[in-house]
């Protein structure tokens, strides 16, 4: 029932049974409001009575990153698709696996900031190699705080960082990828290393679809 749409990863992973039944009732009211709002917005009131099975979120290729060393954190990834507008609002793992699970997004501090970069790059002509737009090394200390100070260093200076996000939107019928360099489920306070080939249950919490448990296989990429 939860079959993959196109997945880019190399191995398909056994799908797990949705396990949202117990929490489902609790979520229903909230989900119902969301659905109703959506339906009203679409002007299709008749859809109000549609069965709950049709708003199941499909989860494909869930995997969790092997910890390369002594790290006590890792990330998990998967592809999600919901037939109705929904949101991934949280995730959890058993307490004997890790302490904290959050939704994160890897960000590029330069997205949207493309102005001025060419000028900066051209400044590099003045001196030899490596002088580029980093002409003033003392500026670097400013970078300890505040990403704005990065704005003068663009082009090759794509700084990648991470931020917690409250939810991940799943527009109806659209595949949303949790993948390296983008959204991921951040798992912190690992009790033990994540070993390649092992499977870990991750419970996903959706605003509309309730909880769905998936088995994520551990691999490197």
């Amino acid at each position: 029932m939860k079959t993959a749409s196109a997945t880019s990863a190399e191995s398909a992973v056994p799908e797990t049974q949705a396990d949202g039944s117990s929490r489902r009732g609790r979520r229903m009211f909230r989900g119902g409001i969301a659905l109703t709002v959506a339906v009203i917005a679409a002007g299709a009131l008749a859809a109000c009575g549609s069965g709950s099975s049709s708003d199941e979120v499909s989860v494909s290729d869930p995997w969790i990153r092997v910890t390369p060393g002594t790290q006590d954190m890792t990330a998990a990834y998967m592809d999600l698709e919901s037939p109705v507008d929904d949101k991934l609002v949280g995730a959890s793992v058993a307490s004997n696996i890790a302490e904290t699970v959050e939704l994160h997004e890897t960000t590029d501090s330069h997205s949207g900031d493309t102005s001025g970069s060419m000028d900066d790059m051209e400044m590099g002509d003045q001196k030899g190699p490596g002088k580029g737009n980093m002409a003033d090394s003392d500026d670097m200390s400013d970078m300890e705080m505040g990403s704005d100070s990065m704005s003068e260093m663009d082009g090759q200076m794509k700084m990648m960082g991470m931020k917690q996000v409250p939810s991940i939107a799943l527009p109806a019928g659209e595949e949303v990828k949790l993948e390296p360099g983008g959204y991921h489920i951040m798992i912190m306070g690992l009790k033990d290393p994540i070993e390649a080939g092992d499977e870990y249950q991750i419970t996903l919490e959706f605003e509309n679809a309730g909880e769905i448990a998936v088995q994520a296989i551990a691999r490197d990429n």
Binding site: S109, P129, G130, G132, N133, M134, S137, M140, S141, M143, E144, M145, S147, M150, M153, G155, Q156, M157, K158, M159, M160, G161, M162
Partner: peptide, 28 residues
């Protein structure tokens, strides 16, 4: 920093949280 500069790389250490953990942004 000087090494990063020659490559055109950089990083930024974020402020520590209550447990002393901190994020690091970096060119990749």
């Amino acid at each position: 920093r000087a090494t990063e500069k020659v490559f055109g790389a950089s990083h930024r250490i974020g402020p520590p949280d209550s447990e002393g953990d901190y994020d690091v942004s970096h060119t990749a």
